[in-house]
Design a protein around this nucleic acid. Structure first.
Lengths: 110, 110
DNA sequence: TTTACATTCAACCAAGAGGTTGAATATATT
DNA sequence: AATATATTCAACCTCTTGGTTGAATGTAAA
């Protein structure tokens, strides 16, 4: 499981439609900051900040080539978050089963 | 897939260790606000606010019984978020495969 | 070298998060 | 009726987010 702060950052980064759109954009390969920002109505600077949040969550890495910064998507954090979610869902499913069973047993005793 | 705002709220609600702990606490059944708050070092009011965030994301529901408010966990939003993550991962995996294949093809042409 | 481009940095703003304390409200208990 | 309990509401604080604009920096092209 990811370190708590890592999970925090991943989920926080994903909890924004602009950032999810940026990641989708990067799924078809590297892109420069300007290219990533182009479809958005907001300023380049605003997009640049979103990219920072994604970098902090390690969902995006940056490769500088001259004046151009090429961004690429990293799968690991999303994989880890998805895994955490699955584990958590299973954990809860088990608990809920147990509760149901307890309730059934109580009924049988009446 | 969940409406974007729903997903936003779910991921945002999950992106905090206190709130995840609250949800874990509720996995063993209903609990009152005070009971939920008890293990935390922060004030009852702070926990109450966290609960509000969880309610807004529909991860928690509230049943009032006299002066006591009983909270319970709802699985749907986490299920939906997990599903979104899985779909997104598959989407990306496919894209990355395609990219790899493209790169391979380019190599073969040299 | 001047100009254009790609990007960040800095300052600012409004809104929200996450916490506090203190008061208000509603319900139980004595 | 008085008191205690459960919870929220309201105001406040600090930090972060998400956006803006304008200037600075670094690199490429004329």
């Amino acid at each position: 499981m990811p370190a708590p702060k890592t999970l925090d950052r991943t989920l926080l980064a994903l909890a924004d439609p602009t950032r999810r759109a940026i990641l989708r954009r990067l799924s078809s390969g590297e892109a420069r900051v300007t290219d990533v920002a182009q479809p958005f109505k907001m300023s380049l600077n605003a997009v640049s900040k979103h990219i920072l949040v994604l970098e902090r969550a390690k969902l995006v890495t940056r490769r500088k080539e001259g004046r151009d910064h090429y961004l690429s998507y990293r799968a690991e954090p999303l994989d880890a978050a998805a895994q955490w979610m699955e584990e958590t869902r299973h954990f809860w499913a088990k608990r809920l089963d147990t509760l149901e069973k307890l309730l059934r047993d109580e009924d049988e005793q009446t």
